[in-house]
Computed example of a mutant assay.
Amino acid sequence: MTEVETDSRGRVTIPKDVRERYGERYRLVELRNSVRLVPVPKDPVGALRESASDELKQASMNELRESAGEEGRKQAEENVR
């Protein structure tokens, strides 16, 4: 684990080895008691298909959007109060 601090302008520097491993773009996700940086893949649809089940690999873009929306609503109900 690496500890980092914000600079006087509120910026955080991500160490080079982490950027090389995960890329240059991240989403800042606010959770109940913390924040998380989530890497944004260069090809989000390709990354989703690679990590998906065989069923999802064959799905259309509309089916992927619908599935993602359902999962997002489910997680929101479980984690946001």
Rank of each mutant, 00 (worst) to 15 (best):
R19L: 08
Y26M: 01
S53T: 14
S8L: 07
G72M: 11
Y26E: 03
D7A: 00
P41R: 04
V35C: 08
L48Q: 03
E78R: 15
L28T: 01
E55H: 10
R11V: 01
V29S: 06
V38H: 05
R9Q: 13
S60Q: 09
L64R: 03
R11D: 08
E20L: 13
K74G: 01
K42W: 11
K74C: 01
N62S: 14
V80R: 09
K42H: 14
E50N: 06
V29R: 08
A76N: 12
N62L: 14
V80Q: 04
L48T: 01
K57W: 03
R65W: 13
G10K: 01
K42P: 13
Y22L: 07
T2W: 12
K16A: 07
R65N: 11
S53C: 02
V12Q: 06
E5K: 12
A59F: 08
R49Q: 04
K57S: 00
P44R: 02
K16H: 07
V35D: 00
E71G: 01
R19E: 12
T13R: 15
D43N: 14
Q58S: 12
L48F: 15
D54W: 10
G46W: 10
A52F: 05
E24W: 13
S60K: 11
L37H: 10
K42E: 15
M61W: 09
V80P: 05
N62H: 13
V29A: 04
E24L: 11
V35E: 03
E20I: 02
R9C: 03
E78H: 09
G46S: 06
P39G: 02
G69A: 05
E55W: 10
V80E: 08
L56E: 07
Y22H: 12
E66G: 08
Y26G: 03
K42D: 15
E55A: 08
R19C: 11
I14K: 10
E55G: 06
L31M: 04
G72H: 11
G69F: 07
E5G: 03
V45H: 05
A47D: 13
R11Q: 11
A52Y: 05
E50V: 01
R49C: 01
V29W: 12
M1I: 07
P39I: 00
E71Q: 08
E70F: 07
K57E: 00
R27P: 03
R36G: 05
T13H: 11
P44I: 00
A68R: 05
G23Q: 04
K16S: 06
V40Y: 11
R49M: 07
E50A: 09
D43S: 06
V4H: 07
M61T: 07
S51E: 13
R21G: 04
R81L: 09
S60R: 09
E30W: 08
D54E: 15
